[in-house]
Design a binder for these strands. Structure first.
Length: 278
DNA sequence: AAAGTAACCTGCCCGC
DNA sequence: TGCGGGCAGGTTACTT
């Protein structure tokens, strides 16, 4: 589910709520979620420590502790974090898909909920970068995300532009919804070979990436009708109203009125207008 | 070696 | 009303 704008929205909210709070208790009901280290070690190294900083890399959230450790969450397709301000001592009111509870000193708690269980968590020493994160490509909001670098990535690629944009090793954070929207606004067909884009076309894609992602962050992400994405307070993102093509089966192009095409690229639904996208 | 497919999961929607 | 198939915002491992 969550792509860069949703993860960034959650990160910003976490920054306002859990920073400098001491974790007094950790409860894990789904051990398979924890990839590194063993569940018991994971709990022991979290309990009694403060979260000092929350960062984002691509779709990963990184929580830096006051110790030598940091922990990492990837929300997968359906992972959600929610923050409960007032709560009882023990997090015993467990919903069906609540898998992890972090109880803070002030009685508030952070709950990880995940219907499909594709999410993952790690706890690592700060000296060690997580392999999956090390392999990530440029972050669209990183200082090093320049047009020159972007254009070079396109030129070296042998793949279509949509697959390239969704390849986390090239550009980190773009998923299926935003890839569709970005290409529509840039006027580029998703199946165009990335290396075939002219400099002007690449510039349009580059600018659309920044535009679409920052507008989506502004509106706190996209919650589709299935309502699976929520922010820390349980509220929906409001970018769905802005979507121009994604999810619009039998829809019309908002620019020219022609029927939108729906194809599959790497088994993901892909929407575009064959008149407006070249 | 790139590209396709299956796997990991649950829930919802649709057609029969 | 029920059942089967397809689909969902992601990633990885395995197969062609």
């Amino acid at each position: 589910m969550p792509e860069l704008p949703e993860v960034e929205t959650i990160r910003r909210d976490l920054e306002k709520t859990i920073i400098h709070k001491k974790i007094v208790k950790v409860k894990i009901y789904l051990p398979q979620l924890i990839k590194i280290p063993e569940v018991n070690q994971f709990i022991i190294r979290l309990q009694g420590n403060d979260i000092e900083e929350v960062r984002r890399r691509g779709k990963y959230l990184l929580f830096f502790l006051n110790t030598d450790d940091y922990f990492v969450i990837h929300l997968g397709m359906s992972g959600q974090l929610s923050y409960q301000y007032q709560s009882s001592e023990l997090p015993e009111k467990k919903g069906k898909h609540d898998h992890v509870f972090l109880l803070f000193e002030d009685g508030s708690q952070l709950i990880y909920n995940d219907v499909r269980k594709f999410g993952k968590m790690w706890l690592l020493s700060k000296e060690r970068e997580m392999p999956a994160i090390e392999l990530l490509g440029l972050d669209p909001f990183g200082l090093d995300f320049s047009f020159e670098k972007f254009f070079n990535i396109l030129r070296k690629s042998h793949r279509n532009i949509k697959s390239l944009m969704m390849n986390q090793r090239k550009i980190a954070g773009i998923g299926n919804i935003y890839a569709n929207e970005i290409l529509f606004i840039a006027g580029i067909r998703p199946l165009r070979k990335a290396s075939s884009l002219t400099k002007k076309e690449a510039e349009r894609v580059f600018l659309s990436i920044k535009d679409v992602l920052s507008s989506a962050i502004q509106l706190r992400g996209t919650t589709m009708v299935d309502k699976s994405y929520r922010d820390l307070d349980g509220n929906w993102g409001k970018y769905e109203k802005e979507l121009l093509v994604y999810g619009k089966r039998k829809g019309k192009c908002p620019y020219c009125g022609q029927s939108l095409k729906m194809i599959r690229i790497e088994n993901r639904s892909t929407f575009y207008c064959c008149a407006c996208q070249k």
